[in-house]
Amino acid sequence: MKFIKNHLMFILPLMAILLGIEFFLVFERTTDTYEKGLKDGYSMFVVTKEPMELSAFQALNEHISGTKLIKRENIVAEVTKGVSQSTSEEILAALPYFYNLGLDSYLHTSELEKIKKDLLSNENVKKVETFGNSHNSNYKLFSFIKFTLKIFIMFMAVVSLFLIIKQMEIWKYAHKERMQVMEIFGAPLMLRSGVLFKVALMDAIVATILVSALFLYIKFYWATQSGIDIMVQNQEVLFKISDIGLLLASAFLIVIFAVYSVVFSSKGVQE
């Protein structure tokens, strides 16, 4: 019982850190897709007197990555139902040209405004609509959630690290006698702390397996069963097999840091 408690006190905070790392990774990946979606889904609406080439737009502002001409015939066909052929041709000739402009990256309102100004500097451009507001409030909320989550993960990690070091001190106390005897017989630090390392590395492996298993379960079972769209859509990025290696490496690093911080703090053991 004491044995299990001893290890849980180490494994749980370690798992908290690993969960934090994995959440962070998953979040970065999903937000990448989300940002890409926002970027791709966004377009600026521009009205010009004469037709314009992509290169002409790009000469005005380098963020513009694509143009799509909206077919004027469709617009005219709507408003000229029952009107004679010649009249509709006249209307068509009088109509300006409409474009949807794509951007190369996700930009803030101020930058959108700058693009608008750049475009309007050309006499050929009659009107620019950036749809800045609705688009930006979405993004702001999104950035805020992202930021809070990162702070939360950091906070959890720091608290967990303290818990790990605390538990390590308890272990050190349990192994103190042996470490002292070994020290008197001239054992170097590595040999003396060998047992601590062994126990801690074992726990690091256990923690990594548990966290990986949890995410694999979420990915392959829960995500598809949940019916939550965003989960199903992003199933691929939820947990990658390569994450196991990353988690294990992180766990080992934390363990090595914890063992050394504890072992070094115990120098000069006098009876």
């Binding site: 042996r178 005897v181 017989f185 001239g186 040999l191």
Partner: peptide, 29 residues
């Protein structure tokens, strides 16, 4: 210390090790 053989009044054996392992601690080191 590795060149010393120390015998303690209170033995200072490592209780979670077997007798055989205790005896060869200096060789292990």
């Amino acid at each position: 210390r590795a060149h010393m053989g120390i015998i303690f009044q209170d033995y200072k054996l490592i209780n979670e090790w077997t007798v055989a392992k205790n005896v060869v601690l200096p060789l292990m080191i």
